[in-house]
């Protein structure tokens, strides 16, 4: 299985005076992402979880080329994205698309949804005829569950769920290989979430698309993803198959995330041993040395601050950046 996308040891730094500036002195910079690697196969879904400020969005923005990377490389189907000329990069962009968190804000209020959905087509296939584009817009709308008769409507006439379907149609019309979903359901009603998530899964099966899904809703992530990556302050903490998340995850941060999910039954919720992490996310300007989770980690030792723990294989497909936590309970028994 060759990887569709490979992110190799990528570091993204931002200047404190706004925007990523490669030349500014180091005290003015912080690393929003440091030494992050991942691989994504075709038809695979990778879920990324982490608190706000953990670098999830920066990672996907680096993948689509919206923020420059300082170190490492991003390889798309065997070709290094940072090395390719703008022309082939545009062709690669055709193969990637993105769905945004706020469905209404990601649609231009002055354009009809037909124009919005057609935009990737017009940019990437300038020779397509108007009738051809109109036909494909109608097809795609129907596929995501929107009536094609609505093409001339404007985004403000739609509900949040419908707007997100428009966003999905726009991401889908260019027949991409990879769709990146940045919190696709966070702004939606719970009742709509399942519809959108299931639609994404169906489309993945139908068109053989790979997905990168960012969310802080663990249940959504577990439902759609094949593998889950846990991030904290720009570092990868743990990466494991999603079926193993509840039983086999063992990084203290992952456990804390799982335990902080409330259970909608007061008696169980009260009886639970609350081991949620305390305190705020440390400042990016002055991150903790060594393992970045030390300041809030329940099992931190003195040595944790010395050097960054390597991401080591703890089981089949299970990578872990913590040498001290208990071995995965699932592995202990089995």
């Amino acid at each position: 299985m060759t990887a569709l996308l490979e992110v190799d040891n990528v570091t993204v730094e931002f200047s404190l005076r706004g925007g990523p500036v490669p030349g500014s002195p180091s005290r003015d910079r912080f690393a929003a992402l440091e030494g992050v690697s991942l691989e994504l196969a075709e038809r695979e879904t990778l879920g990324i979880v982490g608190e706000s400020g953990s670098g999830k969005t920066t990672l996907v923005r680096a993948i689509v080329g919206m923020v420059p990377i300082q170190k490492g490389r991003i390889v798309w189907k065997g070709s290094d994205l940072s090395g390719t000329d703008p022309d082939s990069r545009r062709r690669i962009r055709k193969d990637m698309s993105m769905i945004f968190q706020n469905p209404l804000a990601s649609l231009n209020p002055r354009m009809t949804i037909g124009q919005i959905i057609a935009e990737p087509c017009q940019v990437h296939e300038p020779h397509a005829s108007r009738a051809e584009i109109r036909r494909r817009v109608a097809e795609t709308m129907e596929r995501v569950g929107l009536a094609p008769a609505l093409v001339n409507r404007y985004p403000h006439e739609f509900s949040g769920g419908q707007c997100q379907r428009v966003g999905i149609a726009r991401a889908l019309i260019g027949r991409p290989k990879l769709i990146i979903c940045d919190e696709p359901v966070a702004a939606l009603d719970v009742s709509i979430r399942a519809q959108i998530v299931n639609l994404l899964k169906q489309l993945q099966d139908e068109f053989g698309i790979s997905l990168i899904m960012i969310s802080h809703d663990l249940s959504v992530i577990r439902h759609v993803s094949h593998r889950i990556m846990v991030m904290y302050l720009g570092h990868v903490m743990e990466m494991l198959p999603s079926g193993h998340l509840l039983q086999n995850s063992c990084h203290p941060y992952t456990r804390a995330l799982i335990e902080s999910v409330p259970i909608p039954d007061p008696s169980i919720q009260k009886a639970r041993e609350m081991r949620t992490i305390k305190g705020e996310l440390p400042s990016m300007r002055n991150p903790p040395s060594g393992c970045r989770f030390t300041t809030r980690c329940p099992i931190a030792r003195d040595r944790c601050g010395d050097s960054r723990p390597a991401l080591l294989e703890a089981g089949p497909g299970h990578w872990l950046a913590c040498p001290y936590c208990d071995p995965p309970p699932g592995l202990k028994t089995g």
Binding site: P109, R110, R134, A138, E139, A147, P148, L150, N152, E157
Partner: peptide, 15 residues
């Protein structure tokens, strides 16, 4: 879905 089979698009209400 052939173009001629498309239903008549409903008019939108622009800003």
């Amino acid at each position: 879905l052939q173009p001629e089979s498309l239903p008549e698009p409903e008019p939108g209400r622009s800003l």
